[in-house]
């Protein structure tokens, strides 16, 4: 041995090193196995190819985490309302989602819903879950299913094609907001009953419905309701106008700009997308969707579009949606240009 030869390790040190590495291998291997079991099957590369609608299982495999835990985006379970004159946190051009149900008008401000996404509300004996997904620009109400009209919902913290994935508190089944069909759980395949809301401004709504009740910021949770973290509809900035999405979406289509707002209409097994701006320009657009005759009309008072069944005048099954979102769930949708 030369003067510069390294010291040979003692037996105790060697055994200590072997024990540590062995323990790390066991822990690491067990952790990897647990992660694999917890994650289940790897997600599909895409929910569907262009022109083919996804199966429920394909959609379930395309679920991704948005980051928050279950109800980390807290639904409003005890909504508190005030009269028009008692609301002081809204500006004229702020977006509100309006609903007239059972003869009563209520407004759900987008600055509040952007932080909560779900309001489990009641109109008399009727339960209406008012939902909003900021990433897909969709708002729709649900009155449960035919068998379970009193359902309430929470947020899973997960997304599918950037869309809010809800869960019902009765059975813990998962429901994408745009689809309204359970993709997993006991109620898989069942369809929620949609109730359309109108997308309008605070100025227009209070002029049209001066007796309306308005959801307040007294939600039980503390949030910065004066700030929209995604951007601004008032100033047309941020995520709401950028072409890109934050989470992966498949399939995609460039018929319209990704964030262009369309009226997504469902009838039977068919779907139709009409650009909102087209309805504004034309005033009235008549169409047939799955054998159902519908009429899209521009409401100049509320500065919004409504879709109704041509014969009865009853609201059709429709929602405002960003084009990318509507197409991702309904890649075989027809379009009106």
């Amino acid at each position: 041995m030369t003067e510069n030869s390294p010291r040979e390790p003692g037996r105790r040190q060697v055994l200590k090193g072997a024990a540590v590495l062995g323990g790390l291998a066991v822990v690491g291997g067990g952790g990897a196995l647990a992660w694999q079991l917890r994650s289940g099957d790897p997600p599909a590369d895409g929910a569907a190819t262009a022109g083919e609608r996804s199966t429920l299982d394909e959609l379930a495999n395309a679920v991704v985490s948005g980051g928050p835990g279950k109800d980390g985006i807290p639904p409003i379970d005890d909504p508190r309302f005030a009269g028009i004159d008692d609301i002081d946190f809204l500006q004229d051009d702020d977006i509100v989602f309006g609903l007239v149900f059972g003869g009563e008008a209520r407004a759900y401000p987008q600055p509040v819903l952007v932080w909560h996404e779900i309001v489990n509300d009641t109109f008399g004996d009727d339960h209406v879950a008012v939902t909003y997904c900021p990433l897909t620009g969709t708002t729709v109400g649900f009155t449960g299913t035919d068998e379970r009209p009193d359902m309430t919902f929470g947020t899973t913290g997960n997304l599918i094609n950037s869309n809010l994935l809800m869960y019902d508190r009765d059975t813990d089944s998962d429901w994408p907001q745009v689809l309204g069909t359970a993709i997993s759980g006991t109620l898989k395949g069942q369809q929620l009953r949609p109730v359309p809301l109108v997308w309008t401004t605070w100025r227009a709504w209070r002029a049209e419905h001066p007796d309306s009740r308005v959801l307040t910021t007294d939600t039980g949770a503390l949030r910065d309701y004066h700030r929209d973290p995604y951007g601004s509809y008032r100033e047309q900035s941020g995520y709401y106008v950028d072409e890109g999405t934050i989470f992966p979406v498949e399939p995609t289509d460039d018929t319209f700009g990704s964030k262009e707002v369309v009226l997504g209409i469902r009838g039977g097994d068919s779907q139709l997308a009409i650009p909102r701006e087209l309805v504004r320009e034309e005033g009235t657009v008549d169409a047939e969707v799955g054998g159902v005759s519908v009429r899209a009309e521009w409401d100049g008072e509320l500065d919004t579009a409504r879709v109704s069944r041509a014969g009865s005048g009853e609201p059709a099954d429709f929602m405002d949606a960003m084009w990318f979102s509507w197409y991702s769930f309904y890649p075989n949708t027809e379009v009106r240009r």
């Binding site: 991704v64 948005g66 980051g67 928050p68 980390g72 985006i73 952007v114 932080w115 996404e117 900021p134 990433l135 947020t155 913290g157 997304l159 809010l164 973290p229 995604y230 941020g238 995520y239 950028d242 072409e243 890109g244 999405t245 934050i246 989470f247 992966p248």
Partner: peptide
């Protein structure tokens, strides 16, 4: 930090880059 369902640092990056990084 979280803003609703999106990590705030991804919002700061911008949607184009964020879509690549989020998975």
């Amino acid at each position: 930090g979280f803003a609703c369902c999106v990590p705030t640092f991804l919002l700061a990056i911008g949607s184009g880059v964020a879509a690549t990084l989020t998975p």
